[in-house]
Structure formats: structure tokens, C-alpha cells
Amino acid sequence: MSTPTIGVLALQGDVREHLVALAAADALARPVRRPEELAEVDALVMPGGESTTISKLAVLFGLMDPLRERVAGGMPVYGTCAGMILLADKILDGRDDQETVGGIDMTVRRNAFGRQNESFETAIPFVGLAGDPVTGVFIRAPWVEAVGAGVEVLAEVPAADGPDARIVAVRQGNLLATSFHPELTGDHRVHEYFVRMVEAAGR
């Protein structure tokens, strides 16, 4: 496969940072706001942002069904934070009318780590990435409350209030999701991991 073209869903959120990170990971990156733009990309990143806003705009501008079709058709997708919520088959603490694209057999709790005053950064080991742990930047972040059998857990953080760990990165087939924002750190290894997934899917 030649250099893959990876879109970044650009309805709202930290689109620019993902475009920069993807370009650094040797992909062709471009913003996607319309169904015809979605049709032209090999893979997609769903950025951080406000998940209620992104979901509303995706419905209003006719992107929700095409997104579901592409996901069902095997298109690789990486979602960070709000993007993780959009990839979840089930969400907790969302708005009643909040739709997701779905695709990953998981239940995600929105704003699970708390409000902005509880937002934090910490080092996390990430399965499949060599070298130092990644710096996880968690901003009003969700966590994964439950996963189905086909979902691989890639990263966890210790829970603040007990012995449990919170799941913060998962993969199911061609779909990847993190509660945190690698795009804000200048460390492009998670994006490189995703680009390798995209290349493998294209072979």
C-alpha cells in the first residue's frame, strides 16, 4: 500500500493537533467534514472535543450513517477522548439523545475522571509500544467501564479510590480508542501505531 490517506473528523475539537501528529507519522492527513470527503480517505481519526457537539453535527450533516457503514466495512478508526465515546457501542452519563457511531464492544463512561479540576497527566505503559511509557493527558476524560470478549486492553491507570485499574486504551480489530490525548504531547508513537494498523488493513 502506498502512503495511506487518513482523515480527521473536523466537525469540532483538536483537529489540528491530530493532522500534525499523523503527518509526523508519515500519513497523508486531511480534515473530513462531509460524506464525500469521508469516502476519499483510507482511515479516520475522531479527535478530542465535546462529544455531544460532534455527535449532533454528525447527525445534522448526514455523516452518522456513512460513518457506521465505513466502520462496518472495516475502515480503521482511532478515537481520542470524545472520539472514544463515539466509537463505543454503549455510553453512560451521556445525553439521552446522544448517538454514537459504535463499533467497539465496550461501555464508556463520559467525564468519568471528573471535571476540569480533576484533569491530569501521568505516565502509562502501552501494550505494543516499545520504549518509555506514553504520557497520558486526561481532560474531563472518559474511561472504559466494560469490554466484550473481542476487545484487547492496551492501557490502564490505577483507580484513585481503590485497587482496581481503569481501562483507558483499547483495540478491537481495526478500531483503536484512548481516553487520553497523545496528540497534545509531541510523542507520535500512538499515531504511528495507528498508521501501522491502517497499512496492515490495506494489505
Binding site: 475539537g13 472535543g49 476540569q116 474531563r140 504531547t185
Partner: peptide, 18 residues
């Protein structure tokens, strides 16, 4: 885990973009 870092504060605003 560190709260209130410049990255966490500025990063919050990045999520509001658009």
C-alpha cells in the same frame, strides 16, 4: 498523576476548538 499542569489547562481549550 499531576493536575493543573499547563498542558492540561491549555489542552482543555484545544478540545473547545471549532
Amino acid at each position: 498523576p499531576q493536575v493543573g499542569t499547563a498542558r492540561v489547562k491549555r489542552g482543555m481549550a484545544e478540545q473547545l476548538k471549532g
